[in-house]
């Protein structure tokens, strides 16, 4: 049993629990980053003896997509916070004015 795989499982579970538990949209984004990093850790770990480096490139593109997600998500969070004065995801149930 490899300890790195245990670490990635713990990271994924901590991210999942952060997404469900916290009543704040920024904490939900932090939890999503944790889950993406757990996937990245698995990709890098399984690529450790592969000379084609395909896992590294997959991890690289995962990082790029995570950056896009964080930028757009935080912009939406700020916008919603200015409008509704709340960032609790359960209370945002309306789209129109």
């Amino acid at each position: 049993m490899e300890h790195t795989l245990i670490l990635s499982s713990i990271l994924f579970a901590a991210g999942l629990m952060t997404v469900i538990v916290k009543r704040n949209a920024i904490m939900v984004l932090i939890g999503i980053e944790l889950m993406l990093n757990a996937a990245n850790l698995n990709l890098v770990f399984f690529n450790r003896n592969n000379p084609a480096l395909s896992g590294h490139f997959f991890a690289l593109f995962v990082i790029v997509v995570a950056v896009c997600e964080a930028a757009v998500g935080l912009a939406i969070v700020l916008r919603v916070y200015k409008y509704y004065q709340t960032s609790i995801p359960d209370q945002l149930t309306e789209l129109k004015d």
Partner: peptide
């Protein structure tokens, strides 16, 4: 922040970590 859904979240987290 305050917490919500602590029991379902811990169930989901422990189950996913255990299965993995």
């Amino acid at each position: 922040v305050t917490n919500q859904y602590v029991l379902p979240a811990s169930l989901a987290g422990i189950l996913s970590a255990g299965i993995l």
